[in-house]
């Protein structure tokens, strides 16, 4: 204890304390944070099963008949693709209202998600879950996909799919670690403030090209070392100012200090 007390005025003490505090808070949160209950799937009829899941998990915001309430929009006519996107990316069921529901861990397995999608699809016509052939990115024309991405998507989602800010705290999320199916569904349904890119605007083949392009830039090697989040010159400049200049100042202080 004496050795610890003697070091309490060490220059690094405050940093070490802060780090310790942060680590403890993080560990406590991960242990104590509320966990989502797993929904069981019992019914044989998919729509009926979907309806019971809907009533248990979604109806409090979207209404008993999915007609929408003050806390959630109507789901009539949004289609199976919308349900599959929102539930499989963990956005729905939402934990609370806010500017924008963030991506999270999916709370339902594929079977339950498909059941809810089938139920919502039965309420009114909407975009269906796309087929594997146009969502895998297989055989995509990467150059064309990149061109379409840069014209239609890059202004919000960043040239490397790293995401970006919108107005009043809204944001376009990063496009990493999402499936081709989710990308396709987001394009046709326009979740949150994203505009729709229907198949009459960008054809299914071109959507597949965009997915192929996104998968290609996600897996391509980093040519210039660490990417710093691919956020562009502002973040790189900030990094240089804070870390590189900080290092240089530290080196200057060390050089000026007496050796003995």
């Amino acid at each position: 204890m004496n050795a610890l007390a003697a070091r309490r005025r060490h220059p690094a003490a405050i940093t070490v304390l802060l780090l310790l505090g942060l680590i403890l808070t993080g560990a406590a949160y991960s242990l104590l944070a509320p966990k989502q209950a797993q929904a069981a799937l019992a019914s044989e009829d998919q729509v009926a099963a979907g309806k019971s899941l809907f009533l248990a998990n979604c109806a409090s915001c979207h209404g008993l008949n999915a007609q929408g309430t003050l806390s959630g929009p109507s789901l009539i006519g949004v289609g199976a693709a919308s349900v599959d996107f929102q539930v499989s990316t963990g956005r729905m069921p939402a934990a609370g209202t806010g500017v924008q529901v963030a991506r999270g861990v999916a709370k339902f397995d594929e079977e339950a998600t498909a059941a809810m999608a089938a139920y919502v699809a039965s309420l009114g016509q909407g975009p269906a879950i796309p087929e594997e052939a146009v969502t895998s990115g297989q055989g995509a024309d990467l150059a064309r996909g990149g061109e379409i991405f840069r014209v239609n998507c890059a202004m919000c989602h960043n040239f490397a799919g790293a995401g970006g800010a919108l107005t009043w705290g809204k944001y376009a999320p990063a496009l990493k670690d999402v499936t081709g199916r989710q990308i396709y569904e987001a394009m046709v349904t326009g979740p949150a403030n994203m505009p729709k890119f229907t198949d009459t605007n960008i054809s299914p083949e071109d959507k597949n090209n965009v997915i192929g392009f996104l998968k290609a830039i996600e897996t391509q090697p980093q040519q210039g070392g660490y990417h710093l989040g691919n956020l562009g010159p502002s973040s790189e400049g900030l990094f240089a100012w804070v870390f590189a200049l900080g290092l240089l100042i530290g080196a200057a202080v060390w050089l000026g200090s007496k050796a003995a």
């Binding site: 061109e147 379409i148 014209v151 505009p195 890119f197 009459t200 071109d206």
Partner: peptide, 21 residues
Amino acid sequence: MRDPQNTPIKAEEVAIGSVFH
């Protein structure tokens, strides 16, 4: 014309909430 596809656009192809460049 759509950019970059360079194809003309029919009015009924533009859904509400969609955006064309």
